[in-house]
Amino acid sequence: MTLVRAHGVRKSYGATEVLRGVDLTVDEGQVVCLLGPSGAGKSTFLRCVNHLETIDAGRIWVAGHPVGFVLKGGKLHELPEREVATQRRDIGMVFQRFNLFPHRTALENVTEGPIQVLGRRPADARREALELLARVGLGDRGGAYPRELSGGQQQRVAIARALAMKPKVMLFDEPTSALDPELVGEVLDVMVALARDGMTMVVVTHEVGFAREVADQVAFMVDGAIVESGAAREVLDNPQHQRTRQFLAKVL
C-alpha cells in the first residue's frame, strides 16, 4: 500500500525555485533515504510532506489524504491550520536540532502529544512513554530536562516523542547532522531498529552507510529535483547520473 505519494511538487522562495517537480512514492513499511548535496531541497521537500511548508504546485498524499487539503465535490479545499493539525497526527517528524520542549522533562516531552492532542489518560500515556524511552535506551532518564541530556540522548527522546503519536510514517530531517561524531551511532542504532520493526520512514541524511544498510529505496536529489532513484544498492553501488557519482565520491 502506498503511504506517501508526492507528485510534481514545486515550491519557490521569491524568485528562487527550490523544488522543481518532485515525484516520490513510499510504500508502507519502506525506508526511503533522500540523499544529495546541501541546498538540493531535501529538507524543504520533507517539510512539505507534513505541511510545515506549503507547496506552490503538485500534490502530496499521505495515508490517502491530500496534505493540507480536503477533497470535496471534486475540488481540493485548503484546510485551516487546526485541521491540518489533525492530519499531522499520522506523520511523525524528527528535526536536525531536536527541538525538544526545554521546559518539560524527557518524559513530559513524550507524553505531551498523547495527552494534549490525542486526549489519552495521563497514567496510560506515562506508561507508554516510559516503554518508548526504554526502547530508545533512555528508560532511566525520564525525569531529566533536555539541557541535562547529550545531543544524542535528546535526539532519541525526540524520536520517542514522535513515536508516541503512533504515526503511520516517520520523517527524519538530517537527524544526526547536529551531533558530535561519537554520538551519531546511538541515534542511527535506534533508527535501524525502528526500520527493522517495519516503520515507514523518509530520511534526509548524509549517512550513506545508514542508507546502504536499511534503505529500501534511495532517491538522489539535486537542484530541487530527484535525478536518480531506485533500490539502495543499485543507486549507491552503480550510480548512473553524473551528479550522484560526484556526490558519492565525495562523501565515501
Binding site: 510545515l52 493539525a85 499531522r88 506523520i91 528535526f95 502529544g113 492532542v117
Partner: peptide
C-alpha cells in the same frame, strides 16, 4: 525558537494549544 512551534505542530498540536 521557531523550531519549538514546528515541533508542536509536528505532534499535531492546534495553533491554540
Amino acid at each position: 525558537d521557531p523550531g519549538q512551534i514546528e515541533a508542536a505542530k509536528a505532534i499535531g498540536m492546534t495553533p491554540g494549544k
